[in-house]
Design a protein around this nucleic acid. Structure first.
Length: 471
RNA sequence: CAGGAAGUAGCUUAAUUUGGUAGAGCACUUGGUUCGGGACCAAGAGGUUGCAGGUUCAAAUCCUGUCUUCCUGACCA
């Protein structure tokens, strides 16, 4: 077999950042627009997003949520009602100051997230305990004026989903926060084949205005963490700031408890950086827009029609590359696009009564009798899905290290890409020091236990944490 | 936002040092031959050199500003 490297893609072991942007471009996922950080998601990239949306939206609805659409603009005075929230987001909001040529009496911001819009609305519609819970979700774009931008990972206009719920009791709201965290985990592990670590953020890392933030942390091929979604418990902070109250069964006024949770197209970045290789994208079958790329070699129309009819009947998506490119070109193209399976069929196969299936994850070529093609495709798609997950999990687990003291921590942080498990006293000064010395931040809390020493200061530890560098 | 690099056809780039007709490869179009790992022949189309000013008889080239992209940090989903 000849050299299979792709000249258009930088090797991921040579320069991971360039490899990433090469994949985004060569696989036709995105294009740049003329505004920094505003990416064009091209049809193939958007099809991946649509598949993820379909899975999530179904699960949101199964758990009782309904979709709404809120405005894009927030008046400054409304935004200012919750102080921590303002401090957290003020540095990165985009302001609208003019309507046509006239300056606005009050400037407005383009939503960087919609908590205040939902709260403003909830204030009007929540009156009784009978109105609760309110389980709303919104699919929309938000704007955060990021300084450094990268396709999918960090853009100024972010395509996402944000759930905002209100509950009569604290317990119910916390249950919701964790329920949605688990929905995210389910989708990321079982559909996107991304092993994720879930847990609570430290005070320093939690969402501006939240009482508790739960996160999903994925590890990319280069050992760097990608925060792949968050679920927040707000307590009554926003509700009090916005004066949201309801009458309970005893006819007494109470303040409701709130949650919010969101995931973005960043998940596509995570898929690329977890599964992709030097030949291109590798998509998990569950969310791949096209499951099978069919490459006919020579005139094989008759058998081709049989196979495509069967695939249609089974609802397995496919493309047939009938262009007059050479087979080698088509193979490479199918690899760049990350189609989970490639089906090659030529005269040589037909004489043997077979076709060739090629797995994108292992590049293994398998000759299959024609009457077993569909069942083999089904079997392989399932197998590829689980192989991608297991492979990513094994790699991740092999890059998680334990540090018992600061010397060990510094040594690992310096020399081994990945996560570090280390105990922590709970003092933000230790988090700051670790960040300053290593650029590692706390990813999330594993558990809260009272034994051992803080990996930084050596004092009594109260938490066990994952630490890591992040995108 | 700090530091660095770069913008010439869809992509990679030559011409920039020393100002003087923007040239190629890939991709694209048409016709033909091919076809099991990025095919070949022939013809064709594609550029106000990122944008805006300035210097000059003359600017891709020199100067100023600005926008965008990439890399390394800080910030963040």
């Amino acid at each position: 077999m000849k050299d299979k490297t792709n000249k258009m893609i930088t090797s991921r072991d040579v320069n991971f950042a360039e490899w990433y942007t090469d994949i985004c471009r060569v696989a036709d996922l995105v294009d740049y627009s003329s505004v920094k950080g505003s990416m064009i998601i091209r049809p193939y990239g958007y099809a991946i997003w649509e598949n993820i949306v379909a899975v999530l939206d179904k699960k949101f609805k199964e758990t009782g949520h309904v979709n709404v659409q809120m405005p894009m603009f927030i008046p400054e005075s409304l935004f200012n009602l919750e102080k921590e929230h303002v401090e957290g987001f003020a540095p990165e909001v985009a302001w609208v100051t003019h309507g046509g040529s006239e300056e606005l009496a009050e400037r407005m911001l383009v939503r960087p997230t919609s908590e205040v819009l939902f709260c403003d609305h909830y204030k009007k519609i929540i009156k009784s305990y009978r109105d609760l819970p309110i389980l709303y979700n919104q699919w929309c774009t938000i704007v955060r004026w990021e300084k450094e931008t990268r396709p999918f990972l960090r853009s100024r206009e972010i395509l996402w989903q944000e759930g905002h719920t209100m509950h009569a009791t604290r317990e119910e709201a916390i249950e919701e926060t964790l329920r949605m965290l688990n929905v995210y985990r389910d989708v990321q592990e079982n559909y996107l084949a991304l092993p994720v670590i879930t847990g609570k953020k430290t005070e320093k890392e939690k969402f501006a205005g939240a009482e508790a933030t739960y996160t999903l942390e994925a590890m990319m091929y280069d050992g760097i963490a990608l925060q792949n979604g968050t679920s927040h418990y707000f307590g009554q902070g926003f509700a009090k700031a916005f004066g949201i109250q309801f009458l309970n069964k005893e006819n007494k006024l109470e303040t409701p408890y709130q949650t919010s949770w969101g995931v973005t197209t960043r998940m596509i970045g995570a898929i690329i950086m977890t599964h992709g290789d030097d030949l291109g994208l590798v998509l998990p079958p569950m969310i791949a827009p096209i499951k099978v790329a069919i490459i006919p070699i020579g005139d094989v129309n008759e058998i081709l029609n049989q196979i495509t009819e069967l695939l249609k009947k089974e609802g397995i998506t496919f493309v047939v590359d009938n262009s007059d490119k050479s087979p080698g070109f088509k193979f490479a193209e199918a690899e760049v696009k990350g189609y989970p399976l490639r089906l090659e069929v030529g005269k040589r196969d037909l004489e043997a009564g077979c076709v060739v299936l090629v797995r994108r994850d292992t590049l293994e070529k398998i000759s299959v009798p024609i009457d077993e093609v569909i069942s083999k495709i089904k079997e392989l798609l399932i197998n590829i899905q689980s192989n991608l997950y297991n492979r990513a999990k094994m790699r991740r687990d092999s890059m998680i290290y334990h540090a018992n003291n600061y010397e060990e921590f510094l040594e690992i942080a310096k020399n081994k890409p990945g996560f570090i498990i280390g105990k922590w006293c709970g003092d933000v000064n230790c988090e700051n020091k670790i960040k300053e010395d290593t650029t590692f931040k706390s990813r999330c809390i594993i558990d809260e236990e009272n034994n051992g020493k803080c990996v930084c200061c050596g004092k009594e530890a109260h938490y066990n944490l994952y630490w890591g560098k992040q995108y």
